[in-house]
Write a protein that binds this DNA or RNA. Sequence first.
DNA 1: TTATTTAGCGCAATCGCTTGCCAATAGGTT
DNA 2: AACCTATTGGCAAGCGATTGCGCTAAATAA
Lengths: 340, 340
Amino acid sequence: MAVTIKDVAKKADVAPSTVSRVIADNPRISATTKKRVRKAMKELGYHPNVNARNLAVRSTQAIGVIMPSSAETALQNPFFPEVLRGIGSVAHETEYSLYVSTGGNDEQLFEEVKRMVYGNRVDGMILLYSRDNDPIMDFLIQENFPFVVVGKPYQNESQITYVDNDNISASKEITKHLIDFGHEHIAFIGGTTDLVVTKDRLTGYLDALREEGIEYVDDYVVHDEFLRSSGRKAVEQLFSLEKPPTAMVIADDMMSLGVINMLEEFGVDCPEDVSITSFNNLYLSEITRPPLTTVDIQIYKLGIQSAKCLIEQLKSKDEPAKRLIVPYAIKYRHSTRKLD
Amino acid sequence: MAVTIKDVAKKADVAPSTVSRVIADNPRISATTKKRVRKAMKELGYHPNVNARNLAVRSTQAIGVIMPSSAETALQNPFFPEVLRGIGSVAHETEYSLYVSTGGNDEQLFEEVKRMVYGNRVDGMILLYSRDNDPIMDFLIQENFPFVVVGKPYQNESQITYVDNDNISASKEITKHLIDFGHEHIAFIGGTTDLVVTKDRLTGYLDALREEGIEYVDDYVVHDEFLRSSGRKAVEQLFSLEKPPTAMVIADDMMSLGVINMLEEFGVDCPEDVSITSFNNLYLSEITRPPLTTVDIQIYKLGIQSAKCLIEQLKSKDEPAKRLIVPYAIKYRHSTRKLD
DNA sequence: TTATTTAGCGCAATCGCTTGCCAATAGGTT
DNA sequence: AACCTATTGGCAAGCGATTGCGCTAAATAA
């Protein structure tokens, strides 16, 4: 059907192997021959067949990107397109292709991953989430398949290369900001607790309270699905307390949106009645009312770095496990208020 | 390295070809042999190598998904994860894999597409946007490569299969809603005019005005980048008119967010001072203040249908070009107000 | 009993490319 | 002139599947 390496070989009057080496820019081929072969390729409109190549070298030039199962509304979080953009950017320069997972639920996701691994569809993968007892991560480790995770692995931390923010100190810093503003009744609203990112952010919050000598109130920490129910439950719960919080640390910009929305329904104004700090610095967070004070975790950069790490790892098989912390930066906007 | 079809054959004491036929569940093989072979596969932990298979049958079981170049902030629009989710869902059931584009700019995108096509990486693709004079679409047509577009092609409409909403009547209907509410000064804010979706929505708006005998005011229609600058320019422009609009039709929920945000800066309240209607019904649109009256275009379904169409097309080579209109439904919420 | 079918499988070519190894030519050394 | 050593490039064996065709043995027909 299509034009193959043989056709080119014939036209350039060389052997197929020579053509192959020209493609690989093998130094064994003289410049003049290369020129001739390349000319033939152009004229014939030759393009190598990746499948054949992959079969021969036993590698695809592809990396798999595993997102949380799409049943979770989490996927609607613009976080994902944004990391994807970062990953895609390095994938493009290095000529890797991107495979994305399609699983709707956890089981399907797992199937998908197996297909990728066993079927030799990808050379390595990037996990875009990290949760407790993740069977997928376990599987990858057991199969000794190259992967990197965006976020902190729930275990085997030292043997897995991952890129993450220092969520603990970010969280600590931002809740201290609240404390500096005179707040003492600070709530924490986080997503499902089996995401390690949630745990880290909670830890930072707790650390701040402790270090500043502020009493921890159990009722002040609530967990809710990231998007689901728009944080309604959380808000209801918090503002029916006899002493409602005057500030809150929310673990994700999208949640914050939901919360602010609920707040209004309850007649609570932000930042007048309650200050809010958040995480991620999605594009959205600056066009909401009020614009959110949030920690910029540099999503795009997370994507870039994870892809780079993975590719390095693929290149030299026994690259040591790395940990890469991308710095965060707090964006101070208008969702917090100094208490008088 | 890995276990191959030959290993299985040896173990089951049959020929490799038999194993292959067992995999394909070919009726030529007796049930008992199949059983035996399958047992061997299990015991050896056999998994077919897709590359080899693809090479042999000259097809990948993969479909490419082309998003707009990621430089455009448009990619941050949750529209994309959502279509992707739809596509992924049918991809999963049909055991197709998903390749996504990674190009950062138009040129890179084009390269990427060429790689996919020439390299036999995917069997077909889905374009997630449609714009004027799109070289990629032209290329695909010229190469006679199977593809479907989400949205309406800018030309050759009858020969391309695509899935879309009836954006014209949706837009007409929703601006009539505004008119019914007594508005006569209605603005239109759209994204870049070379997206055909923008044009369609504009057309519907104009149709409504005409049919209702409302005068068209040139200053009332402004175009802005989808996300960029948060619609600031649009708002500035409109509200410095001597007769500012009392309502607006905005072509995208994300833009609406930006606009509402700007509005506040200008001291204009929605819906008190100005009514807003929007498009897409992103998850976000119901957790904003006010919740948006928007047309639900059923993004997920767009994804599902486009994937289905593509796969049908791949199965039977000369499937005729189809057009699939997925119905829309207006969600009436609180961003519009009846004029008294 | 012999001739024909019909299952049920195996042979071997093929898909398009890579790569270890060998061959040939050329230039350089004694 | 005989011998070496680079350079260049070709041969052919894979990589792991699929598939047209042919073969054998059992089943059915004559």
